[in-house]
Amino acid sequence: MADPIDSLSGRRDLRLFRGQVLPRRNELLTSPALWVSIGLAILLAIALPHLPAAYFPISEAASIGFTFASIAMGACIAAIVLALGLPGAARIKRWARLPGTTKNKSALSDLIFVLVWATLCQIGLVGTCVIALALGGPIALAPANITWSHSLGLALGFSTFFYAVAELFVVVQTLSQMGVVIIDEEQKNKDTSSSTHLSSPGQ
């Protein structure tokens, strides 16, 4: 059965990876959040054997990741709903026509992608925690006989966690910026309306 959304898309590519992620690959790969997360993860993986948390079980660390991801995913989905409903129909139509920072994408498309990408990062964190739970179980995060492959796994896991946290911060920042834009536009409309009212004949 054909996807009913396809009939609404015209010539738009609705596939998430090819239609949305791939055109923004340069922005994603050069994002400070990505490289800061990787840097922090590598530092923590190197320092962990010398920290009190070295013998913390991987299963419990994964449980903390699950809890964070579930809360963050709910926040990201709520943010998507707010981004589509809070601005109002007229403003949404205008943002859909404004060019965004990505070629052939609108400002509204960029806004929604930021929130969708943050949601995907939380899903990625869930997947990472499942793998950690399956492979690590009760094993310590940094046992005394730690191997290079174990350290690499730690760095990858911590990178995913830090990146998910960073993307949640981006969601909060984006909603804050959206609110500022809406308030600024409403104040400008109010000022324009007041000026028009004062300059009307017979007033």
Rank of each mutant, 00 (worst) to 15 (best):
Y163W: 03
R25Y: 12
L135Q: 09
Q187H: 10
A83N: 02
T192H: 12
D6T: 00
A83Q: 01
P32Q: 02
L40P: 00
H150A: 02
Q122A: 10
L28F: 15
L120F: 14
P143Q: 14
L28V: 09
R12A: 03
S106M: 05
G10N: 07
A75Y: 12
L40V: 01
A41V: 03
V21N: 05
D191Q: 13
L120K: 07
L16Y: 14
S149Y: 14
T30V: 01
G85S: 08
Q187A: 12
G39A: 11
L198M: 10
I182T: 07
S7D: 13
I38C: 08
A118M: 07
F66V: 08
A142V: 01
A118P: 03
P57H: 02
L156I: 15
L168A: 03
L115K: 02
M1Y: 10
N189M: 10
L175V: 06
S195I: 12
V130P: 09
R12C: 00
P87F: 11
Y163C: 05
V36L: 15
F66I: 06
L115E: 03
R24T: 02
A155I: 01
L44M: 12
G124C: 14
G153H: 07
I112D: 03
G157E: 06
F56H: 08
A72C: 10
R25N: 08
L84P: 00
H150D: 07
R24V: 00
A83V: 11
R11V: 12
I42H: 02
A53R: 00
A53W: 07
S195H: 06
I77V: 15
T174R: 09
S151P: 02
G88I: 03
F161E: 09
T160E: 13
V126C: 15
A140F: 10
A72Q: 11
G10Q: 03
R15I: 01
A41D: 10
P143D: 13
G10F: 09
I182L: 13
L141K: 04
L8A: 13
L98A: 10
C129N: 12
F158M: 06
I64P: 01
Q20T: 05
A90C: 06
P23F: 09
L22K: 05
V21D: 13
A47K: 01
V172Q: 00
T101F: 10
V116H: 01
L14F: 01
L115S: 05
I123K: 08
T119M: 12
A166Y: 01
L141A: 04
S59E: 05
P99H: 06
I146Y: 03
A166Q: 07
L98S: 14
F161P: 00
I139K: 15
L43N: 03
A144L: 15
T119W: 13
S194Q: 14
S193W: 03
L108W: 02
A96V: 09
L43E: 09
G202F: 01
K103E: 15
S176A: 09
L28I: 15
V126K: 04
R97A: 15
C121T: 02
L28A: 11
S149A: 10
I71M: 11
